[in-house]
Structures are given as structure tokens and as C-alpha cells.
Simulated scan of single mutants.
Amino acid sequence: MTKTAGSFRGARALFGALALVIASTAAAPSFAQQQDANAQRKAFRVCQDPNNLPFSSTKGDGIENRIAELFAKDLGLPVEYFSFPQRLAFVRNTLRYKLPGEDYRCDIIMGVPAGFDQVSATKPYYRSTYAMVYAQGRGLDGVQSIDEFLKLEPARLAKLRIGIYDRSPATEWLNKHKLVEQGVPYAIMNADPDQYPGEILEKDLASGKLDAVIVWGPIAGYFAKKVEQPKLVVLPMKSEPGVKFDFQMAMGVRYGEREWKQQIEGLIEKRQAEIAAILRDYNVPLLELQPVAGGRP
């Protein structure tokens, strides 16, 4: 998983995470086909992971579900979902999946890293960062920042068990700060359909199996809010030389669908305040958006 990808299924763990996605070489629709598709659009059709909170779920209670409902209402369309685990070949099996004589199964992925080249990515709609999470009452109380964490006595740091998704920026950070021995790696890819990135917090950190966890910010914030006991503390992490923790998220459509992409970007701009409110409701650590270079339409 690349650093950019890690954000996709878990940072989508991983942000942060997504070399998970393998795209097909399906031809982009012509301009005439695109115009016809927009004119005949009967639903706001979303490609989603069925078990990937806080982003999406079949119950429709994720961040992306709520934003999809917001956009669909503006367009006067019902929302329809095509679900597929966001692991290998997600783009190929959702956004680009089309059998001869049939239509595509869905038309938009609600969360991709800005600039992700397997889709035509929109302008970003939020920027977040990785975070460290610890449980109160287990020896780290009073630590209010990553700088304070790193200033703990070496003997105290040496006893910690820090859960991370392997090959994410957290791996590089532990290595940089000579904490590799304290790291407890979790596999980015898991064949179990019931597995979800937040398990590392909701189960292993909450139970005391781990002393701290480093995950993509939306996952950290959501599960810290969801877990009632023990109380979980979230410490956002800043990018450092050699370790990038913050990433911008966009939406993805098929290449060649210029009008559809422009329509989505118009909704992102129009509903930025409502989108930000949804993200805050899910306790997502938010950073100011940064300009991005233009890409292929």
C-alpha cells in the first residue's frame, strides 16, 4: 500500500492507504455518451465499501453516506449504492465495472486521495492527518501532544505497545524516533469481510491489549467518540521531514466525464459548510485545505 493509498480503506488504515486499488483499462466514455448519461441520470449511484465506518456502511451511517444524501437531494435524485470491499481492484470492480450491453454499476467514489490517478479526482473537500490515540487511566494521562509523548522517559516509552497498520506513515515515524520495538503491526489487507480498520481502537486499544494506536485521523476521531469506556484521547500528528501524515481527500468519477465531474465540484463548493459540519460531527481532525495542481478531466 502506498502512502496515498493508505487513506482509502482505512485512510482510508491506511491512508493513507490504497495501493489496494487496481484500475482496469476500460475506455472513457465519449463526450456524446457523457451528455446522454447526464440527461438520463435516474439516481445518484455511489460505489462504496459495505463495512468501512466512519466512511461508509450498508446501514448508510457513514460520513460518505451522509454527503451522498446531501448531494442527491440537491440533484433531486435518489441514492443507490453498489457495494464492494475496498481492498484489491476496488475501482475496477465498481466505478469501471460494466458488462457488455449493461450500464456501469455506480458513478462516483465519495472518498479518494486528492490526485489519485486511477480515477478523475475532483477538487479536495477535506484535509486531515494521522493521530495517536491512547486510553485514559493507563499511564499516559496528561500527555497532550506528540511532542510531550516523545519527551517521556525512555524507560517508560520502552514499555509501550503502539498499534499501527504496517507500511503506513506510522511505520516510518516509529523508525525515525527509534520506537520500532514498541510497534505492534497490523496487516493492511484482511480477507475477513467483517474486519474494519477501527477494530484496532474499538477492540484492542479499549481492552488494554495496546497502550496507544496511530491511525488515519477520521478513524481515530470517530472511534474515540464512539468508545465510552475507557475514554480515548486523540493527539493529531504533524507531518515531519521524511514522514507525511496529512492528506487531502477528494471524490472520484470516470475519466472523460467532464460535465459530471464539474457538477460534483459545484456541489462540493456549494455545500462546503454542510460537509464540514458532517466531518465535525464524526470528530474528524480537520486541517485547512491546500491548493492542488490540476489533473486530467
Rank of each mutant, 00 (worst) to 15 (best):
S7K: 03
F55Q: 02
Q229M: 12
E153Y: 02
Y196Q: 15
G142N: 00
T129R: 10
D117P: 04
Q272A: 11
M237R: 00
D61F: 09
L99R: 12
I108S: 00
I200A: 14
Q272I: 06
G163F: 12
G16D: 04
A293R: 14
Q40G: 00
K42H: 07
R271I: 01
P154I: 13
R41G: 04
R138L: 11
K123P: 01
A13Q: 00
V79L: 11
A72G: 12
F82Y: 15
P241E: 05
L267I: 10
K73R: 08
D204I: 10
F44W: 00
L235T: 04
P230Q: 05
G217T: 01
R12K: 07
M110Q: 06
Y196F: 15
L53S: 07
K209R: 15
A158G: 06
S30I: 11
F149E: 03
I164L: 11
G60D: 04
P236C: 06
M110F: 00
V21C: 06
F8N: 15
A72W: 10
P54M: 08
I188D: 08
F223E: 03
N52A: 05
P85L: 14
K244L: 02
W260H: 11
A206V: 13
P113V: 03
C47I: 08
L157M: 14
S24K: 09
K59H: 11
C106E: 10
V284L: 04
V21S: 09
R127S: 08
Q229G: 01
V79S: 10
Q263C: 11
L150W: 14
A5L: 01
I275C: 00
A155V: 13
S83G: 00
L160K: 14
L14P: 04
G10F: 01
M110Y: 02
T2Y: 04
E257T: 07
A170D: 14
T122L: 12
P54V: 06
L140A: 01
Q48R: 08
A131W: 08
K226S: 00
G221M: 04
K151L: 08
E148K: 15
A89L: 06
S168G: 10
L160N: 09
F82E: 13
G242Y: 07
G6K: 02
Y104N: 13
G115I: 09
N190K: 15
